[in-house]
Simulated assay, not measured.
Amino acid sequence: METNFKTIVLSDIHLGTTGSKAKEVVRFLKQFQCENLILNGDIIDGWQLKKSGRWKRKHTRVFNRVLKMIDCDRTKVVYLRGNHDDFLDQVLPLEIGNLSIRKDMIYESQGKKYFITHGDVFDNITTNLRWIAYLGDVGYTFLLWLNARVNFYRRKKGLAYFSLSQYVKSRVKSAVAYIDDFERELCKVARSKGCDGIICGHIHKAEIRNIDGIDYYNSGDWVESLSALAEDHDGNWQLIYFNQLDFGKQDKNAGKVVPIKDTEFSKLNTFYQ
């Protein structure tokens, strides 16, 4: 697998929560180089940090890795605000060297234009019915808690990982309809802005598809799917899943990652006061 990309997009890392796979994010970022790194919202989970979340050293290491990419690889990093890190509204827009924090952006590559946004502003639940969004967050947190216990016993029996929340979302008709509506509405927005595609996150469902002539790309999340979008230097996009990388078969000279064939920022607290 190629390890040098033009652009990598990650979203929904939810640092500050027990479900965040911060160690996996750091390990992932160490395997790849890119000219542009776009952190597309919900990187820090301010909602959970206000309640029961805890900021741990492993969460700080994600930002240490990003800063090292800026310093050593001259990577340009754009952090786009999501609904869970909406505290960033207090500092938007901000640009310091190769790091910028914005609400959204237009990305141009190989003659194509993409509107990049977390996606929550086009979600009626998170924008108009915030209390329902908080209630949904509580329910999702409970599913993740339950999921961890289910998979603890599955591992003891030698069974593969099972995503309870993904299963629920795929079976509940209203959830399926919501996702489809979300995707189509975002494509309409991209078209209205004269763009060829939309790049988003928010709904924790990685996807690459074309909807009515508009490219729809969703980078997924780093709570369950552990996925990222990557664009090569020819303008081709692909989804990369952490769990499909075999880190044990790296080429020591080239640093390649072979796909599996078979298968303490305490200052952040000031934002919440």
Results as ranks from 00 to 15, higher is better:
Gln48Val: 13
Arg102Asp: 05
Asp251Trp: 00
Ile214Gln: 03
Asp123Cys: 05
Ala148Val: 07
His14Ser: 01
Leu15Ala: 07
His14Ala: 02
Ser192Pro: 06
Asn218Lys: 08
Cys200Thr: 11
Lys58Phe: 02
Asp262Pro: 14
Leu229Ala: 03
Trp145Val: 13
Lys76His: 15
Gly111Cys: 10
Gly82Leu: 01
Asn40Glu: 01
Leu186Asn: 06
Glu264Phe: 15
Val121Lys: 12
Leu245Arg: 06
Asn243Asp: 15
Leu88Asn: 01
Gln250Asp: 13
Asp262Gln: 14
Lys193Tyr: 10
Tyr114Leu: 02
Ile132Met: 15
Asp12Gln: 02
Ile199Gly: 07
Val91Glu: 03
Tyr272Thr: 06
Trp131Ala: 12
Asp234Ala: 10
Cys195Gly: 05
Ile43Tyr: 03
Lys56Asn: 08
Ser192Asp: 10
Ser165Pro: 02
Gly255Pro: 00
Lys21Trp: 03
His59Ile: 00
Tyr114Asn: 01
Asn64Met: 14
Ile125Glu: 04
Thr126Arg: 10
Gly119Glu: 00
Cys72Ser: 15
Asp86Tyr: 10
Tyr107Asp: 00
Lys169Asn: 14
Met1Lys: 14
Gln273Lys: 15
Arg154Asp: 02
Gly41His: 06
Arg171Gly: 05
Gly97Asn: 06
Val257Asp: 07
Val168Asn: 01
Asp196His: 10
Leu129Ser: 09
Asp246Lys: 03
Gly248Ile: 01
His14Glu: 03
Asp85His: 00
Asp104Asn: 11
Gly248Glu: 13
Thr60Met: 09
Leu143Met: 14
Asn98Ile: 01
Leu37Cys: 00
Arg54Ala: 11
Lys173Asn: 10
Leu135Thr: 15
Asp71Arg: 14
Lys51Asp: 13
Arg102Phe: 09
Asn236Met: 10
Met69Arg: 05
Lys30Leu: 07
Glu95Thr: 02
Val257Arg: 04
Ser227Pro: 07
Leu10Pro: 02
Asp212Pro: 01
Ile211Trp: 08
Glu95Asn: 07
Val257Cys: 07
Met105Ala: 04
Tyr217Pro: 05
Arg57Gly: 11
Asn40Val: 00
Gln244Thr: 06
Val78Glu: 08
Glu264Arg: 14
Leu186Pro: 00
Ile116Thr: 04
Lys21Thr: 04
Ile199Glu: 01
Ser219Leu: 09
Leu92Phe: 02
Thr127Gln: 08
Glu183Tyr: 09
Gly158Trp: 04
Ile106Met: 05
Leu164Phe: 12
Phe63Trp: 07
Gln250Phe: 13
Thr7Leu: 03
Phe32Arg: 03
Val77Met: 00
Gly248Tyr: 09
Phe247Gln: 04
Pro259Asn: 12
Trp55Arg: 10
Lys21Met: 04
Glu35Pro: 03
Ala190Gly: 09
Ser266Met: 12
Val25Phe: 11
Ala177Met: 13
Arg154Leu: 11
Val77Phe: 08
Asn243Phe: 13
Arg149Cys: 07
Gly19Leu: 14
Arg27Phe: 06
Cys187Glu: 02
Glu24Val: 09
Phe122Asn: 08
Ile125Leu: 04
Asp45Leu: 00
Ser109Val: 11
Gly139Pro: 02
Lys252Arg: 09
Asp42Asn: 08
Gly16Gln: 05
Ser163Met: 04
Trp237Phe: 09
Lys76Ile: 13
Ser20Glu: 07
Gln110Arg: 14
Leu268Gln: 02
Arg65Cys: 13
Gly82Lys: 01
Tyr272Ile: 12
Phe152Arg: 15
Tyr216Ala: 01
Thr17Tyr: 10
Ala230Ile: 08
Gly201Pro: 00
Ala160Asn: 11
Arg61Leu: 12
Ser165Met: 06
